[in-house]
């Protein structure tokens, strides 16, 4: 049996009110140890207020070859962006 510790992806909330952000990965025998290791590896410089760990195996990712169908259709929906609309200056901030 392969006895390498599983790989975990580490997400850290840097400050209160922010989202967790992927910061890197590490190895640990289980989730509890992964959190502790993340604390020791990725918050040495006071970088976090909350840690998520996910075993790398459990992440499903989109495929780069699907880039066209996944992301390009939204490119034409320009009306979703506020700059699409001209508002007369007299109306004020909107």
């Amino acid at each position: 049996m392969n006895n390498e510790w599983p790989l975990w992806e580490i997400f850290i909330r840097g400050q209160h009110g922010m989202s967790h952000r992927h910061v890197g990965s590490l190895h640990a025998p289980d989730a509890k140890m992964a959190i502790k290791n993340a604390r020791d590896v990725y918050t040495r410089r006071n970088e976090g207020v909350s840690i998520w760990v996910v075993e790398a195996n459990n992440i499903s990712a989109s495929s780069p070859s699907d880039k066209g169908p996944l992301y390009e259709p939204s490119e034409s929906k320009v009306y979703r962006h506020p700059t699409f609309f001209d508002i007369p200056e007299e109306v004020g901030a909107m």
Partner: peptide
């Protein structure tokens, strides 16, 4: 024994 422990012990 492993990098993660090395870093933790140093802390």
């Amino acid at each position: 024994p492993v990098l993660e422990e090395d870093i933790a012990l140093a802390n």
